[in-house]
Design a protein around this nucleic acid. Structure first.
Lengths: 200, 200
DNA sequence: TTGCGAACTGAACATTTGTTCAGTATCTTT
DNA sequence: AAAGATACTGAACAAATGTTCAGTTCGCAA
């Protein structure tokens, strides 16, 4: 034993997980209620609260079908903070989090783009690196973006200067690109949310 | 060719599939619209209709998040080579490969380590970056390694010089570390097979 | 027998979300 | 030059769905 969760709560968790797997989306509160003979959505909510407290369910408040079972196994790579001498590298104490490309903290990317040239060397983005891009045509000042200038895609830092947009390289060997905001030559594809490189 | 579905429609399908995989439930019409710059839910509906006609999407009418992809798509992120103007970003022609952290081309990493300090700045590894490490105590000359020197873990370039091992920073502000190969102070944890950084 | 917590009921209510409809701008085709 | 097709916009609407609140029932402990 040791687990203070009722059999009914378990059955509900199982139902949610199975529904999600079978048809691609979790059930609604009312669907759960119908299945278990609970007539009030609040009765179902009572169980969802319980499951969430146990960490068995993740919840997105307000969203339809927002009760989502936590995956049993953690995906991605273990992130270590500072490695301590002594105990083995992958021991629990050393694990700071998990790295999963499709679930970043700050915003999950839509695609990766291979970078050509050294114009962003100063920002640690080298020739051949891949930038992870979140599609978003409205970057904020100072963010690194992927832009299409005419026929060329380019990675630069984005600044708005009145009517104009400045695409600023981070390498003194290169000059900034300045265009009017409404230019048909300019298309902002998205912003860079991550950088990735394979070495060796 | 052969398939009469627009590149944008494909990109939307990809987004739906990925959203479903990542958070357990498909996106709403408005979420799709926001992502693709389509302001009217009916504009999104137009694409969903199209995808359903092609049999790529199953639909549960009236249900929230009712558009569910029929077939799972490839895991990982699409890697684009050079983006061509004209058709939208995620069209098949532009996809060069797929990026999956747990299946790299050159050797899959065992863990990720957060880097402290700027000693490898010249190699494009900045403070706060994560290096992806393959556990391997026998690096080749010139490879970047993670080493434990006494109690400190450090990321440096590895060189063998006769009896000695040189751990070389890539920043002129730092000095190389030289130790004898058999020193109990030195432990090579593995080699860096990738670098990863979240921006913004 | 009273009190208390677990497990709900019932009924609003507020949002979220899908649906429908009437248009429009931009193409390409006729 | 007119007719369609494509790819939407905008607005209104209704249905689906999560949230909240005030109670209720029942078993069990004090």
């Amino acid at each position: 034993m040791g687990n203070h969760l009722s059999a009914k709560a378990r059955a509900i968790l199982d139902f949610i997980a199975r529904t999600q797997a079978e048809r691609g989306a979790p059930p609604t509160l009312r669907e759960i209620g119908r299945r278990f003979g609970i007539r009030s959505t609040n009765g179902v909510r009572y169980y969802i609260d319980r499951l969430e407290l146990e960490g068995l369910i993740r919840r997105r408040p307000g969203a339809a079908r927002g009760a989502i079972p936590e995956a049993p196994t953690a995906p991605g790579l273990a992130i270590l903070g500072q490695i301590a001498a002594g105990d083995p590298v992958l021991s629990e104490e050393q694990i700071e989090g998990r790295l999963d490309l499709e679930r970043l903290e700050r915003g999950s990317p839509d695609f990766a783009l291979r970078v050509r040239g050294d114009s962003m060397k100063g920002a640690g983005i080298l020739d051949g690196d891949m930038v992870l891009v979140r599609q978003d045509p409205t970057p904020r000042d100072g963010e690194i973006v992927v832009a299409l200038i005419g026929d060329e895609s380019t990675v630069k830092r984005f600044y708005r200067r009145g009517e104009r947009v400045v695409l600023q390289p981070e390498n003194t060997d290169f000059d900034p690109i300045v265009v009017t905001e409404s230019s048909p030559q300019l298309r902002i594809l998205g912003k860079v949310v991550g950088v990735y490189r394979e070495t060796v």
